[in-house]
Design a protein around this nucleic acid. Structure first.
Lengths: 101, 101
DNA sequence: TCAATATATGAATATATGTTCATATAAGTT
DNA sequence: AACTTATATGAACATATATTCATATATTGA
């Protein structure tokens, strides 16, 4: 096996580092992990994870900029859900790996 | 499909965030990506990636603390190589994914 | 032991980042 | 329009982080 080494161009490097940066913060991990099980409003997320509404909102913006989450509106409520299967897969995979010590 | 949601304990959260933090920096990504193709000394890594020896050494220490790399000594030279197949797999997987836009 | 080479380390600095507080915006209801 | 509820935003702050410079350590060979 062993894939071949190929120089990383600036753009790829940027995308990859941004992707992992999104997954490097405990709060964002918790939010994404929660969203892996369904759709939740900002308030619901804050309540379930014992976080301030502002904190959740800021982090959701971060995740939305990277297109890792999306939302739909229902009245004044915004329901957030995940929007990147690949990244979610990597997260869940790593969580399982971490749990096995 | 759809795996079940399960609360993340502190330890798992820490391990997962640390792992992704290691992959969130462009310099560390470049080092790990280079090491995916073989064994290199600190000086070789610095030359190939146009980095200061000190920078490489600091980042290698970071990666070594997380057991993502290891080294063997030959005289005064330390040859570093990767030491975590799982993390390397995730990195290469994400690089390929990023390259497809 | 001295010199040369390879690597590690610590301090300093600049920058990035996460959270909090206060407040703004937006939609719905009366 | 006023009020309520849900969410977003901006500033301020504290902390974390990456890089650089100068220097220390370690190994080898003369």
């Amino acid at each position: 096996m062993g894939q071949q080494y190929e120089q990383l161009d600036e753009e790829t490097l940027f995308i990859v580092s941004q992707t992992f940066k999104a997954l490097s913060d405990p709060t964002r991990i918790r939010i994404l992990h929660l969203l892996s099980s369904g759709e939740f409003s900002v308030t619901e997320i804050a309540n379930r994870l014992s976080l301030l509404q502002s904190t959740v909102s800021h982090q959701l913006r971060f995740l939305k900029n990277l297109r890792l989450v999306k939302y739909r509106r229902e009245g004044t409520t915004l329901y957030y859900s995940h929007d990147d299967e690949h990244v979610l897969h990597i997260l869940e995979q790593t969580i399982r790996h971490a749990r096995d010590h």
